Amino acid sequence: MNKFFILDSKQIITITMILFAIIDIIGAIPVVIALRQKAGHIQSGKATLVSTILMILFLYLGDQLLQLIGLDVASFAIAGSFVIFFIAMEMILGVNFFKEEVPESVSIVPLAFPLIAGAGTMTTLLSLKSEYETQNILVGILINMIFVFFVLKNTMRIERLLGQSGLNVLRKAFGVILLAIAIKLFRTNTGL
């Protein structure tokens, strides 16, 4: 039987949990809500689809793509850390660094990339590829993307549940966490 069609449930569970921790859509809820408030709405399906395509493409072509354009994984991760840094500063300080975007582009940048399918996710996929079978990684990606779509689709309900003061507290707290993630990503990839 073709090795591609053999799925390993243990690998799938491990991969799914690793990607869930890296994507951290639960932790990104305040960012998603802030983006939705800024843009008017977020195209959940488009953001999920673009994120899924980016992850699958990077799973298969990541190393070659980075080599083709003369980048290494560390440089890619550092670039992503800067975008995440500025998003975090917006959340903490309440200042707009990014010009107002139309909803279509907000669903792609910064939501699909780098928040969902960011540098951390991409480098994790390259690491997973060296340890696990590709078909199991694909299933792990798809499971995570179904959950991401569910969260993105329900941000208005989550927002109503938390209320404005709850959102403000969460936004500041997760802004600091996002800032720490950006700094860690930067330090890890610069050797500082």
Results as ranks from 00 to 15, higher is better:
70 G>P: 10
123 T>H: 03
117 A>D: 02
54 L>A: 14
51 S>E: 08
78 I>H: 07
113 F>Y: 12
107 S>H: 00
52 T>R: 10
60 Y>W: 07
26 I>H: 01
122 M>D: 11
109 V>R: 04
130 S>L: 09
70 G>M: 11
128 L>E: 09
103 P>Q: 09
24 D>V: 00
115 L>Q: 04
28 A>D: 04
49 L>E: 09
24 D>W: 01
122 M>F: 12
35 L>E: 08
104 E>K: 07
130 S>C: 01
115 L>R: 03
74 A>L: 00
117 A>S: 13
122 M>Q: 14
43 Q>C: 05
138 L>F: 13
34 A>V: 02
110 P>E: 09
97 F>R: 11
129 K>G: 06
29 I>Y: 04
97 F>H: 14
116 I>L: 12
119 A>I: 00
75 S>K: 08
120 G>M: 11
137 I>H: 00
77 A>I: 03
82 F>M: 09
23 I>M: 14
21 A>S: 10
79 A>C: 13
94 G>S: 09
63 D>R: 14
77 A>K: 10
132 Y>W: 08
24 D>S: 02
114 P>R: 09
116 I>W: 05
73 V>S: 07
68 L>A: 15
100 E>R: 08
19 L>D: 05
101 E>T: 13
104 E>G: 04
73 V>D: 01
27 G>D: 03
33 I>M: 15
19 L>A: 09
38 K>T: 02
38 K>N: 05
29 I>R: 02
59 L>V: 14
125 L>T: 11
78 I>T: 14
51 S>F: 13
